[in-house]
Design a protein around this nucleic acid. Structure first.
Lengths: 235, 235
DNA sequence: GCATCATTGTCCGCTTTCGTACCGAGTCCG
DNA sequence: CGGACTCGGTACGAAAGCGGACAATGATGC
């Protein structure tokens, strides 16, 4: 399935482009499979491919060195990787990798740069997404600083559900604890609290969200601001 | 002192622009005094002035509502406010206000937009700063998630010192606690630990940094990554 | 079926931080 | 000088989270 040109796309950012801007990219887009753990960006290495996800999602993790890494953002079919390229540089200190397997289309950094040189509206639309992503990161900073594990977990699950579009998230507590930067048993306990509150059911490696509104309530305002801004700008 | 056109500037971003790009902005720049607490951006309100600080610094605070606000970034003479305008929108959900009084130059959002329309290199240089600021925010997210008060405080003081260029920071524990999102006595205790470690002296409303290297060590890798990237891109 | 492994649930003592309160010290102003 | 106010230091019990360990449970492979 890899390698062919896409005719249409589930990526919300791509589908939001004007027909002309999309045609500017299309000849250089390639379908790719995105298996679990596939690295899309490596810390401080030049970015040579940029990915627009069609399904699944990726985590952006800061400072992976020494096991002290922590997730700062999620990217799914609402966005793209390689924001550094939009900003005029070719790398970032973060790592980006697939957290939930899926598919996407990719383009070389060089092709994207050339297309953005030709079309300012293209650059402009992609920058709007970069802005929305930046807000997501500020919300992560806020949640990390002020919220309990339970609320941060609720926020994470909501963001994950937005991106996979299903009620079921496939993930171990271990992985969640790495993303949130907390102890693994801390996740177990917090999940149990959320389950007792009746907003989800947790099975082995699987979390089923049953009451999204309730989950939003439990997230206690750590969720929603960035999402609303995305809709305002690109919805 | 307010209102006159600046001939030269201490703002590192402005002085890094090409002469042509600077001349594009200069006719619309106005000197302004920036007293403590002056609001430079209000949450969700259209930005009409953009500030390039010459001295002092400003805090960017997320979600000021309900006393749950927390600082996500600092801006001084290395940068500018109004990054949303660079990204193609006119507002952000954050509040930006002067934390350490100083001076700066300002330009209307409209004039800046017109100048960026004319010069892509201008837009590009400013976007490099937006990238560096985004890294600062990811570091805040990391520090908030993984570090103790003592280390977050050390990081904050280092960032403040970078911006004021002096060894003395004028601030109450109360204000610091609001910025870091912790209890006020927590700051008192952490400051005492830093003082016992011999890296600073704390007086009433005044912190004097005496051993910057030591402070960097105590910040335990929460400080430095974003700063190095700023130097690589704009230094 | 049985052994093995990954995952989850639970527990311990300890550290960090919290919320709150109170008091002393410094500063300002009449 | 004296009173009012702000700021900083300290204390207390409680909550949250940690590091580490271990047992129970579910999945997987032989």
């Amino acid at each position: 399935m890899s390698g062919n040109l896409p005719r249409s796309t589930a990526n919300r950012l791509l589908s939001r482009l004007s027909p002309e801007d999309f045609l500017l990219l299309q000849p250089n887009l390639k379908w790719v499979d995105l298996p679990l753990r596939r690295q899309l960006e490596r810390p401080n290495k030049p970015i040579d491919q940029i990915y627009f996800l069609e399904s699944g999602f990726a985590s952006v993790v800061a400072d992976g060195s020494g096991g002290r890494g922590i997730e700062v953002g999620l990217i799914g079919r609402e966005g793209m990787t390689g924001l550094s390229v939009l900003m005029g540089t070719d790398r970032s200190p973060h790592e980006t990798f697939i957290q939930s397997a899926g598919e996407g289309v990719r383009i070389s950094a060089g092709s994207l740069r050339r297309a953005m040189d030709i079309s300012r509206t293209l650059h402009g639309t992609l920058l709007l997404y970069a802005h929305a992503f930046a807000l997501q990161v500020t919300n992560t900073a806020m949640a990390n600083g002020r919220s309990k594990i339970e609320q941060r977990l609720a926020r994470w699950l909501l963001m994950a559900q937005d991106r996979i579009g299903k009620d079921e998230v496939l993930l171990t507590h271990e992985l969640l604890s790495l993303m949130l930067g907390v102890r693994r048993p801390g996740v177990t306990v917090a999940l149990k609290l959320l389950e007792e509150a009746g907003v989800l059911r947790a099975r082995r490696g699987l979390i089923s969200i049953t009451d999204r509104r309730g989950l939003e309530r439990l997230a206690d305002r750590t969720y929603g601001v960035a999402e609303a801004e995305y809709r305002r700008l690109l919805g």
